[in-house]
């Protein structure tokens, strides 16, 4: 259940990386402002190098902003008490690789000051949740990528966090692993966790997120629910087989039709009152109508459109999947 309470507030956040060779620096994050509400799943999407991970690292206090501020649960991110209520899944599951799953979870639970008994209970609960009970004594370095990612998620959950920050949770996973991870994120969402997810896998984002922020070159170029971002359908698509070439030409000449490509007839959404007329034309051309639908733009379409608007000189869709 999403409430209006903002649990994570980022205001005017900028991060410039400077070095001896580049004193002017590289702007990784540029005047970023966003808020994540309690109970929602918010995803920051963007191509590699768009500033997503830098933003997460600032949110976690791992690096420091050049300007701007981050508040979690109303407190400054530097406040250690905040981290009692936050869980973090780092990209590529960086955990101590010589230890087994249960040893790792015991260690991370210990950092929250839990007693030995509580740690044991937690380890059992979390290993069950992520489906790693059977492999609890397998060293991390011998785990598959999917198992590592699930263990990394488990360590992010040792403190039963209210806010969960996931950096590329399905990166490098095969389709089965990706499905398992998406199911786990669903489960956490059902349990009422607020989730900030960073990803460039748009399909998974589309599946689990309530709101999306699109980052490009360090800036937030679009933000909203998928429906808000996608907007209304712009076309009606009719799929019909069996049209003769001459018939297809006649259909294409219809004033409501935008174009015909093989078995697919596209007409403008604004001409929907003339749908029956177009369907008649298709039938007269010998076509058998199989499907009529109004496709809504996918997140991929929205993403590419937002980035092209922001930087029309570059083809921005190449780094997302």
């Amino acid at each position: 259940m999403v409430s209006d309470e903002i649990v994570l507030q980022i205001e005017g956040l900028s991060k410039v990386y400077r070095s001896l060779f580049a004193p002017a620096g590289t702007k990784a994050v540029d005047s970023l402002t966003l808020g994540v509400r309690r109970g929602e799943t918010y995803s920051i999407v963007g191509p590699n190098g768009s500033g997503k991970t830098t933003t997460l690292k600032i949110v976690l206090g791992l690096i420091f902003p050049t300007s701007g501020k981050v508040n979690i649960f109303g407190s400054d991110v530097a406040d250690l008490a905040v981290r009692e209520r936050v869980g973090f899944l780092p990209e590529d599951a960086y955990l101590y690789d010589v230890f087994t799953g249960e040893e790792l979870l015991d260690f991370y639970a210990g950092l929250f000051g839990y007693s030995r008994r509580r740690r044991k209970e937690l380890v059992d609960e979390l290993l069950s949740l992520v489906g790693m009970q059977a492999n609890r004594r397998v060293p991390f370095q011998e785990c598959s990528k999917g198992m590592r990612q699930r263990l990394a998620l488990a360590q992010a959950l040792v403190n039963d966090p209210e806010l969960l920050i996931l950096d590329e949770p399905t990166s490098g996973l095969d389709p089965a692993g990706r499905h398992q991870m998406t199911e786990l994120i669903y489960e956490l969402k059902r349990r009422g966790k607020t989730i900030l997810l960073c990803s460039h896998f748009l399909a998974e984002v589309e599946e689990v997120c309530d709101r999306v922020g699109i980052m490009y070159r360090g800036r937030l170029v679009a933000e909203g629910t998928l429906t808000e971002l996608a907007g209304d359908p712009t076309e009606i698509v009719i799929t019909a087989s069996g049209m003769s070439p001459e018939g297809a030409s006649r259909v294409a000449a219809h004033s409501a039709v935008l174009g015909v490509e093989g078995d697919v007839v596209r007409m403008g959404h604004e001409s929907s009152d003339r749908l029956w007329s177009v369907l008649d034309a298709v039938r007269e051309a010998g076509g058998r109508v199989a499907e009529v639908h109004r496709p809504r733009p996918t997140l991929q379409d929205v993403f590419v459109r937002a980035i092209r608007q922001d930087a029309p000189e570059r083809d921005a869709g190449e780094e997302v999947h």
Binding site: K57, L60, G61, L62, L80, A81, R83, E84, V86, F88, P90, D92, Y94, L95, Y96, D97, Y108, L111, F112, A152, Q155, A156, N159, I165
Partner: peptide
Amino acid sequence: ETRTVYAVLSKPVR
């Protein structure tokens, strides 16, 4: 270098 520090310092550890 192995970035194991991320999971530690994101916990309440000074």
